[in-house]
Computed example of a mutant assay.
Amino acid sequence: MKLFYSKGSCSLVVRILINEIGIDCEYEAVNLATKITESGCDFLSVNAKGSVPALLLDNGELLTENVVIQQYLADTYQAYNLLPSADNFLRYRALEWLNFITSDLHKSFAPLFNSQIPEDLKDKIFKPLLIKKLDFINKHLEKNAYLLGEEYMLPDGYLFVILTWLARVGLDISNWPLLADYKKKVLAREPVQRSLKEENLIT
């Protein structure tokens, strides 16, 4: 199994999950600007979408889309502590959060990362939309240690990675004290530390 990734991007979520479960995996970095991998391969010949993460399975199948890869790995390796089985309604709460993070929160960063959009437009329109979503999650954490209660589960790794992007778009996480505490708590997990070190994001 091989994960195609880009340092610090949303593919970090999959690396964290791999380390949470304890799966053996190869990794190959992708330059998203040139679409060339670290081995010199044309990434578009691997994944025509040109995006990461992309997971090449041992049977030759390529799986794309972050949430789908996470669900596949959790189901395949029966990581029910991270994603409950289908007979447990909590599974659908986990998927609900995963979909909110990918479709609402993650997508809110796209215009803020776009250098073609004027900064004043980002400040007036796009940042307020993101702030509203962060306010919602911060309030949710008033009564929850993690997104789904007292235990770390699949959506928490995804939210953690998203929170690492805030400084890059000029937002201070200290404006959301509960989110700041939450980020520290997730950061303290050994699989998260290992994943960050593997991508040289911390020493």
Score class of each variant (00 low, 15 high):
D135Q: 09
Y146T: 03
L141A: 06
F136Y: 15
K133R: 15
L121V: 14
E65Y: 12
I125M: 02
K122A: 06
Y77W: 04
Y146E: 05
L112V: 08
L105H: 11
E96C: 11
Q70A: 05
N114L: 10
G60A: 06
K143N: 07
F109A: 04
P118H: 07
Q70K: 06
K127I: 00
Y92F: 15
H140G: 05
K122F: 01
G60R: 05
D104S: 15
V67R: 14
L141D: 00
K139L: 08
S108E: 05
N99Q: 09
N99D: 04
L63R: 13
W97Y: 01
F89H: 08
G60L: 04
E142M: 03
L83C: 06
K124T: 11
E65F: 07
D135I: 04
I125V: 03
F126H: 13
T102S: 15
I131F: 10
L90N: 00
T76D: 05
S103L: 00
F113G: 08
K127G: 05
A110C: 09
E96Y: 14
E61L: 14
D123N: 14
L112E: 06
S108Y: 11
S108A: 15
Y146A: 03
A110Q: 15
L134R: 01
L63S: 09
F136N: 01
K122W: 01
